[in-house]
């Protein structure tokens, strides 16, 4: 059984790289990605699971990182917008100028990455 009290050392696999981090059990994934790993592509918007600006892909499926506890993301493969680089999807967004201010565009990209099975 995993037990984390106070601050604990966890391991996150992000964009293909393993990171050992100290987090509070109450830290959400969004804040850990941005604050400790410098991956600021995922954005805080509503912080309520509504806007999608914080969307990342976890084990192949999009999730709102503002609603995921960092320690609950251990053992998962996490992909952020920084990890898709010059993908065809990102190029298509760029070429079509498919953004306005661009703040939540990373969320659009990550939510669009995998078509949902019908």
């Amino acid at each position: 059984m995993i037990v984390y009290k106070g601050k604990a050392e966890i391991t996150l696999l992000v964009n293909g790289r393993t990171h050992v981090l100290w987090v509070r059990a109450a830290d959400v994934l969004l804040d850990v990605l941005r604050g400790q790993l410098g991956l600021t592509g995922a954005k805080p918007g509503c912080r309520n699971g509504d806007c999608g600006a914080c969307t990342v892909v976890m084990d192949g499926l999009p999730v709102k990182s503002c609603l995921v506890l960092a320690c609950a993301a251990e053992g998962k493969q996490i992909l952020t917008v920084e990890g898709i680089g010059e993908s065809p999807l990102a190029k298509a967004f760029s070429e079509a100028r498919a953004f306005q201010c661009g703040y939540c565009t990373p969320g659009f990209l990550m939510a669009s990455l995998r078509p949902f099975a019908k």
Partner: peptide
């Protein structure tokens, strides 16, 4: 961010779930 602190338990069996419930 979540302003309060809490402990986190992740049991991997029903036996560990019982342990977590007793100890949390």
């Amino acid at each position: 961010m979540i302003p309060c602190n809490f402990d986190y338990y992740r049991p991997e069996s029903l036996q560990e779930l019982g342990q977590a419930i007793r100890e949390a």
